[in-house]
């Protein structure tokens, strides 16, 4: 009798422990994702000015795939290449976070961000289309 009671107590204890662990995970997982998003946002913010200058100088441009790229790979200096690499690494992570949240794919989020970036681009900035060719955004298109 006492053996059965002990087994039952152990079972109920482990069930409670499991439930508590699940509850904790459900609470901490979104919080962790949110804090990661905040970290990412901070990094994007810090890089924003530099990236904008590179875009306006025509060194770096947005691609249709939702990432940034050096317009002239050969001519790109180390600093620009570093900014591009960091930006793309963070974008990949951000796309994954949003994709997970919305139940879609990284590529789909990247595509939406590409559209957004193309719309927001200012006149004179370079944009790489699906044909793989760089095009300078014209003033008329930028004002739309």
């Amino acid at each position: 009798m006492s053996m059965t009671t002990t087994t039952m107590t152990r079972r109920s204890f482990s069930a409670t422990l499991l439930a508590a662990a699940l509850l904790l995970a459900s609470i901490t997982a979104p919080a962790a994702a949110a804090s990661r998003e905040d970290e990412l946002k901070e990094r994007f913010k810090q890089r924003d000015g530099q990236l904008r200058s590179l875009k306006q100088a025509g060194t770096v441009g947005e691609t249709y795939e939702g990432y940034v790229e050096s317009v002239d790979q050969k001519a790109a200096d180390k600093d620009a290449a570093k900014v591009v690499e960091e930006e793309n690494t963070d974008r990949r992570e951000l796309y994954d976070l949003i994709a997970k949240k919305e139940g879609t794919t990284r590529e789909m989020v990247a595509e939406r961000n590409a559209k957004r970036a193309f719309d927001r681009a200012k006149a004179g900035e370079y944009l790489k289309g699906a044909d793989g060719k760089w095009k300078k955004k014209e003033a008329a298109a930028a004002n739309k």
């Binding site: 998003e37 924003d48 989020v109």
Partner: peptide
Amino acid sequence: DINIRVDKQLEDFFAFQDKSATPA
């Protein structure tokens, strides 16, 4: 529907770009 939700997420995340673009 997903496109709208993803766009909203991106707009919210990159909202700082609008703020920083205004002084520029």
